[in-house]
Design a protein around this nucleic acid. Sequence first.
DNA 1: AATCACACTTCCAAAATGGAAGTGCGGTGT
DNA 2: ACACCGCACTTCCATTTTGGAAGTGTGATT
Lengths: 101, 101
Amino acid sequence: MSDLAAALDIVGARWALLIVEQLLDGPQRYGDLQRNLGMGTNMLATRLRELEAAGVLYRLPLRHNTRAYALTPRGLALRATIDALGRWGENGSEHEASDEP
Amino acid sequence: MSDLAAALDIVGARWALLIVEQLLDGPQRYGDLQRNLGMGTNMLATRLRELEAAGVLYRLPLRHNTRAYALTPRGLALRATIDALGRWGENGSEHEASDEP
DNA sequence: AATCACACTTCCAAAATGGAAGTGCGGTGT
DNA sequence: ACACCGCACTTCCATTTTGGAAGTGTGATT
């Protein structure tokens, strides 16, 4: 399995990189993530569990039954990838059907 | 929609980035891609259609009924992202691993 | 005691994925 | 000429993933 395939196994799932992108701005709570991303709560819970198991993020306990999610060093290391993909996505409005590359 | 979300809309689908990674080594034919990637032929056909529509790759006609798939400039621009993700994936076996070299 | 915010879980329908087999076309061998 | 082959797909169907909506449990607040 190539390095790329190994990486995609972890952050290739839908919403995974968007969650990490949010957390690059600092730790956030479950409800905040859900509102900021507009994704269903079941998917969010599943992804957070997977990303925690993969060592990308961890649960940061706050008061009583509330907690925040924060990136581990391994999660922060995704900044380069996310920046690169984001820059690539910037130029997405320049597509037109042409027969020559 | 953020730049990252726009990018993921195109290359976030399963296999998409792996296909692009293959084509970074040069144009390949359908059968080669299938063998090199080990993916089902129906998915490959679907992804190639989507990536062509998105301007990431194009069909390069060869003799008779054969053709190769090659990256457009927009597809080649994914090299930075793929390299970054690949480098991130390299360090995936450090969960309970030994000491460093 | 009743209500509320928060962090989920459960249930079910819809969409994506994957394996296997089939299709069409042009070239090759006999 | 005619059977056969490789290539590039398409079709069919089972399995997995995703998504929306509603429900659960816990501790604080009124």
